[in-house]
Design a protein around this nucleic acid. Structure first.
Length: 221
DNA sequence: GACCAGGCACATC
DNA sequence: GATGTGCATGGT
């Protein structure tokens, strides 16, 4: 089975079993971008609390969020954890957004995807996964988002041999799948969905060889 | 009470 | 260049 076939097979199986994931949860591009920063190494339910706090404060707006004090913002996003660093990261992003597009992500639609990616990566606190999440889910660019679950899945299916870095893994997916924004959207969402259940070794799972290399498709504990 | 969750930057060697 | 560490809350 070629890499292309394997990636297509995994996607088809996951899609059949779990259906559309309706990602990203969020009503606007701006909300998605804020969520992308807040969810760094953090459970989404905690992020939801933080976003709800921002909404209730009527501050889910680039200029409003930029203008509130550090202490106020820290207080609003506290449930998402790492609230001090994330406040700095949000402020950095907001400064960039206001500087580059008057606070409107929609104003960036004419920008080249890779230039935009480099721009996002230049912001302190925006790394590859956060930048790619914004590009894919807020700006609808055909960029594959890679995370720790993706790394586990790809390794355990023998699709890539460690050590590898973010971009090697990303290239694996982007080179072996159609460059389709909606496909990339669903695929990453499905990997995150399944990652919670299957990607960690489960002691009781008989299907996992040596309980060390559970497969996404086969292991259904 | 330990462990985990949709990373990232920075210090140190 | 590789490896280690701080950041923090809330659910299981």
């Amino acid at each position: 089975m070629t890499t292309q076939d394997t990636l297509a097979h995994i996607y088809n199986q996951l899609s059949k079993q779990y259906g559309p994931q309706h990602w990203w949860p969020g009503d606007t591009a701006f909300e998605i971008a804020v969520g992308a920063i807040l969810t760094q190494n953090t459970n989404w339910t905690n992020v939801e609390k933080a976003i709800n706090n921002i909404k209730h404060a009527k501050a889910l707006d680039p200029h409003r969020l930029h203008s509130i004090t550090t202490e106020e913002l820290e207080d609003l996003i506290r449930p998402a954890g790492y609230y001090r660093v994330k406040t700095k990261r949000l402020k950095n992003f907001l400064s960039w957004l206001i500087e580059n597009s008057d606070g409107q992500l929609e104003n960036l639609t004419s920008h080249n995807t890779f230039a935009l990616r480099e721009d996002l990566l230049s912001i302190n606190g925006i790394g590859p996964e956060t930048a790619d999440s914004i590009l894919l889910y807020a700006l609808n660019r055909p960029i594959f988002v890679v995370d720790t679950y993706t790394a586990r899945m790809a390794t355990r299916h023998g699709l890539i041999e460690p050590p590898f870095d973010y971009h090697e893994l990303q290239d694996l997916f982007q080179s072996n799948l159609p460059q389709d924004t909606q496909l990339f959207n669903e695929y990453h969402a499905l990997i995150v969905r399944i990652g919670k259940n299957f990607c960690k070794p489960k002691p009781k799972c008989k299907t996992c060889p040596l309980n060390k290399h559970p497969h996404v498709i086969d292991c259904d504990l």
